[in-house]
Amino acid sequence: MSENMVMSARNLASGYDGRIIIPDMTMTIPAGKISVLIGANGCGKSTLLKAFCRLNRVYAGTITLGDRDIRDYGPKEYARSVGMLPQSPAVPEGISVRELVTRGRFPYRQPLKGLAAADYQAVDRAIAVMGIEAIADRNVDELSGGQRQRVWIALSLAQETDILFLDEPTTFLDISYQIEILELLVRLNRENRTTIVMVLHDINLAARYADYLFAMKQGQLIREEKPADIIDEALIREVYGMESRIITDPVYGTPNVIPVGNPSLLRE
């Protein structure tokens, strides 16, 4: 894979339906790293993700990929550099895992031509990396949620982008699948140097797997740093408006957030 392209936003204002959710955002996505966006519901995490993927309007400012404005890229050209896995994509009926993964090759295809050798190779490689060879001929609509998520990530892999955005890739998965998916993404990042940017709701998992955390509140970036450097009780109070205690994860040494809540409700 080529040298990772740097993606950054400068004085970005974005939103949808004429509503500005993010008024003024300046940030650079660390190339070749795993970045996680955290923040309360409605703080603009998904809006920001979609702006980077050209799904939301840019009302002011710019987003650049490499040295070009992202609006100057052709649709397929952009899709060869930047991929996105939406939160809960529609599951098409009656198509096999392999066929679905092959959709990731669309940006490389010519309108009137069939699949090329490179397309078959990329699909095989993606299926192997995600360990889904055994289910490659099953119909996608028969799979469990965890298996399905592997298939979607395989699709993104087949797309062979420098940067991959994921909107809450672990939602609706039980805890063991959450860990499995996140570890696959870490491997992807380490082995292919794919830049990964994702929204996660579980702040403890975010602290464990992220190289960088971006904490957002009301469309603003509050802090961006390595998880160990920014997660403290003050930050959690500011981002989520909630009291907490921070302990150290006994396995990874990363910060772990314990919400205080209202202890008198449960224990006398």
């Binding site: 993927c53 649709p75 397929k76 060869r80 529609a90 959709r103 669309f106």
Partner: peptide, 22 residues
């Protein structure tokens, strides 16, 4: 000439767009 792009539609508009479906 648009058949593959039309097949992306069943994944949802946003997904189709990020796959280069225009």
């Amino acid at each position: 000439s648009r058949r593959e792009a039309m097949r992306l539609i069943e994944l949802g508009d946003a997904y189709a767009e990020t796959l280069g479906g225009n």
